[in-house]
Design a protein around this nucleic acid. Structure first.
Lengths: 229, 229
DNA sequence: CGCGCCGTTGATATTATTCAAGACCAGTGG
DNA sequence: CCACTGGTCTTGAATAATATCAACGGCGCG
């Protein structure tokens, strides 16, 4: 399992699973505001998490696939602050959180894995923040594609050719861009020979160049440095 | 304590504190890449966390004050992924993480508080993401000011008048804006009678109007909706 | 005093959004 | 089978938002 838990921990976790949930494309695993009771491990398929703004505006907070664990945002307020929606048919395990906590108290190694899982989410969100805060549109899309490729690779799928499960609008929302901008960038990357795009099928032709797009910021601007003295 | 831990838990935590650290403005509590060993509770003062991009670009990831707990990002990789820099003289408690985990195994209530603390960080980062991804410059600054006011209020300080401890550049970095844009917005809010600004001293004159700035997005655009069917 | 950051403001450039039109594609019903 | 339909995607032109460049004022500190 690529995300957080190792094989031994998965075995420990197995008896805790309360139920397996089968979902069809578009089904909702949990809604924002719903009471938090369990974490959800994705067995197959993929989904998005959508964060509702106070005024009706929404943003796609993340894209999740097999092996990922969902619902960690709900622990603090005891209610979920985002909504999880299946992007394709999906199978999910619900693991009641009280059982997880009990197990964590009994098994130090598992406990550490749990905190690591949460911490990983923090780091991931941070990374998204950095992307949204400092990168331009093309850098964001390149980052997104490389991240996807990486995650498919970790799961044993091709990191070169894959199918996007999100619409241009959803990708845009995730990256803080409008769907037209995303579309234009796909076209540009295609023209420049970085990728090949047919609708939602993407083939990475030049991974190195994609990385260069990410890194090749306007050279100046050292950013707000560290120490003052 | 406004952030995560209640009085009883603080008492529990007290004997775990390995050392108290006094810091002067500009001092660094921990650096990115440094080995993770402890969480840090701020007793007084404030600091920023700075996230270094791969290419030398940096972003201010957060602003932290008395009662906040720092360092949660480091658990996953066992090394910090950001740098904490004092914005003024500061007093901090270092609490070795292995002791925290031990205590969590012994005390279910404390354990839950710990996971809640981590989850809270996740939610906070999410909120920042939403801000950076969907809001315009003026909405971001208004959000920032209201958040500050709220946090000062929680700590027993005035939520109306307070001193910014960050430069315009640091604020801009945190909000994904350039310092000039931040400066202009301060001026605009001032002109519009929302706030009063003298350098870093800010007085909130019309909290309601500030909220309206945050909420008053361009009316259309329902955002990427939930279920498909 | 004078130097170095910090902050403000204006003019200009750039980037991304908005508005608009049409193409593509899959599913549906005649 | 084909026309129709709704959703998605692409592309262009105009516009708005923000960044960039540049100049200057102010404040604190040595």
């Amino acid at each position: 399992m690529p995300n957080g838990l190792d094989a031994a921990e998965m075995r420990l976790l197995d008896p805790l699973v309360a139920r397996r949930i089968r979902m069809r494309k578009g089904d909702i695993l949990f809604r924002a505001g719903e009471k938090f009771t369990a974490l959800y491990a994705i067995r197959s398929g993929s989904c998005k998490t959508v964060l509702p703004g106070e005024d009706g505006h929404c943003q796609v907070a993340g894209y999740h696939m097999a092996g990922d664990v969902l619902g960690t945002d709900g622990i603090a307020a005891d209610s979920h602050d985002c909504e999880a929606v299946a992007l394709e048919d999906m199978e999910v395990c619900a693991i009641p959180f009280d059982r997880i906590e009990t197990l964590a108290r009994q098994n130090a190694h598992f406990q550490h894995s749990l905190t690591r899982l949460l911490s990983k989410d923090i780091a991931r969100e941070r990374h998204s923040m950095l992307m949204l805060g400092t990168m331009q549109a093309d850098q964001r899309l390149a980052t997104f594609l490389l991240d996807l490729a990486q995650r498919y690779h970790e799961r044993g799928y091709s990191s070169v050719e894959f199918v996007l499960r999100m619409t241009r609008e959803e990708i845009g929302s995730h990256l803080g861009l409008k769907l037209e901008t995303v579309s234009r960038l796909f076209s540009r990357f295609h023209e420049e020979g970085l990728i090949q795009v047919h609708g939602r099928v993407v083939k990475v032709l030049d991974r190195i160049a994609l990385r260069k797009v990410v890194g090749h910021e306007r050279v100046e601007s050292p950013g707000p440095g560290g120490a003052i003295k």
